[in-house]
Amino acid sequence: MLVVKFGGNGNLNMDSFCADVAFMVRNGYKLAVVHGGSKEMDALSEKLGKPPLFVTTPSGFQSRYTDRETLEIFIMAVGKVNKLLVEKLQKLGINAIGLSGLDGRLIRGKRKGVIIAQEGEKKKVLKGDYGGTVEEVDAKLLSLLLERGYTPVIAPLALSEEGEALNVDGDRVAAAVAGALKAQALLILTGVPGLLRNFPDESTLIPEIPGEKLEEYIELYARGRMKKKLLGAAEALRQGVHLVILADGRVENPIRRALEGHGTFIKQGGEGWTTLPWKMLTPAASTESTP
């Protein structure tokens, strides 16, 4: 069982990604896809005359202020990415099924409601925010679909305690889905080859990080969006996923290339191997092992 996060921004290649998903599923691998939507979201918000409002939190994180109107634009943007992925996969003969975290209460989330924004030296309280954190993923629904040959394609929306839609981070959704399904590996595809010692020099790729050293590497090398991906990786390891790979989503056969060792491998227990030839991955993790 493999969970693959297909980035929302950067210039990832949706066609080569879907072709590789199709290859893996045809060869018996069970896959769940999680996607983002920020590129689509930014474009749509501009066109609808509601440019995105990014705020920086006191500790330097960039967060999209999501009021109700922005949330409904976000629903449309990630909805479009979701159905385009499903359409492309169906065209390749893969029985994809597109869901958001609202559907069947797939993803429970906690609403932030408040963002503290740093504006110059002023700190500001922004209320009515529909951003949220991922609390729990319903593995039962996903397994029900996986066992019947469906390939879930999951959009980054969650349902709050009060039954409201929430904009949640795709990387954290992917980590939570991988944890819930006890996936053998979580693969995060982005617009860079992996974690770079000094960005943007792609020759400084860090091939391997032992799980217990991850926090250290985050402090030393991770900035902005990459930091979020690594925190997602840490979360996945905490939930029992043994391997998280950060790899390049711009290339041909991005999944196979990653599994063959091209990217940053973050492993629990840090044994010595650096590649995981995709053949080694047991094809269809037998249904018993899927919870």
Binding site: F61, S63, K112, G131, D169
Partner: peptide, 25 residues
Amino acid sequence: VELEVVSLNPPSLELAPQVEEDWGE
């Protein structure tokens, strides 16, 4: 203590909401 300016006239303050550090979308 951190206070939130709730209104200006009349000026009124409340304890600022505690927000766990977040790095959400």
